[in-house]
Design a protein around this nucleic acid. Structure first.
Lengths: 125, 125, 125, 125
DNA sequence: GTGGTCTAGACCACA
DNA sequence: GTGGTCTAGACCACA
């Protein structure tokens, strides 16, 4: 469910935070859903447990996850979790902006980029 | 001509590298154009000369700038600066992949994302 | 394992870069092998950590080393380290050209030069 | 007669010094032969006159060239100028050593390198 | 004038 | 623990 890339320039804990935020916003992680334990996830991705822990803590202080004593963390009861389409697009904006900038720097036409993006969106990962 | 923000989380030398790349790609810095000397630019932005020097060195090893001994650095005559379209698309791939992943996690449809991207690509930055 | 000579006219960071390249090419540093940490090596050779760091960074941008966050750098899994024979010969070309020029200026015959080169190539360094 | 490459990592004055030494050793510059004036040579290679001047001065202090008031420099009357084959090979040694080292680092076989070198030696430049 | 190297040492992000 | 960034400032090579 989670994809962590240790070679990315984005810190691993940040990758995890971003993904949880999106999965909650998109409704794939419903309120009450339990997340893998720190250890489980650390093992699965061969990552330091502290890294997972840091991500969870950030998400907790943000109000998106909540800690349950002795049990794994779970998605908090919805406040404004599942966002409107507009709000979710807003969340995507920094990435879109960066892509647009890169494309222009590479002197690629809109068509070429969109063609490629369409292809990737069609593939289920 | 160059804007360096010491409070950004992007390292100063990286900001400079990015801007030179963009200005060259966009044609605002033509091959042969001279850049401000390390000391000049360091003074102007009250930054340590080594920080500027690091950026210039990276751009040189990238083949974008060339040293002229005793004179300031200048934009290299373009050779493979403009790679083939396929090669440039390849360079964009990681960003496109990441965007596609985010979009799926946000449960956004291809249309919504592409619509937004088109808008951004049309805006000249 | 590494020999750094502060009195050489070759910069210290360059000496290190050269040696790592050689050790990797020669197979003495296998993919996955860890290098001494920046601090370790700096202490051992009484050199400033930044000097070591510069060498490591260059080797990373070259694709020869890879960073493991929180752990020392290690030799990257070889990919295009071994390029085609033609490509590697191409890399040697400037040196071959320079040698040919020198030989002609010294009025040395092809045989004499090649004889000498053969001898050197046979010696394991 | 002289080839100066401003993009080489070898300083320009050093390139000139090396070439004069070789041409004298090889007998192509005979004792008494006049060299181009500093200005002439600087113009021809679009190089700073000081650079040529520095090379000439070094060669003079070495005893290879001599200054004649109001006239261009000329090759000094031979002492041990035209060297024996062995001596001339000795002069080539650093370049041969470097080439052999590079070849080994690139994992190229002796045959491949020698093949290439032969080709270059045959071409008159 | 130009850029390059190096040290001393602070401070930071990440795991 | 790991490496990265930055400054202050010395000293050098080259043109």
């Amino acid at each position: 469910m989670f994809i962590l890339n240790p070679h990315s320039s984005v810190p691993i804990y940040q990758q995890l935070v971003d993904q949880v935020r999106r999965l909650v916003a998109g409704g794939q992680l419903q309120p009450g859903a339990e997340l893998p334990s720190v250890r489980e996830m650390a093992l699965e991705h061969t990552v330091h447990p502290m890294t997972i822990s840091k991500a969870y803590s950030l998400l907790e202080s943000e109000g998106l996850l909540e800690r349950q004593r002795g049990k794994p963390m779970r998605v908090a009861p919805l406040k404004k979790n599942q966002a409107s389409t507009a709000a979710r697009l807003k969340q995507l904006e920094p990435q879109i902006d960066a892509l647009a900038l890169s494309a222009r720097q590479l002197e690629l036409s809109a068509e070429e980029v969109i063609e490629q993006l369409k292809k990737k969106l069609r593939e289920k990962p």
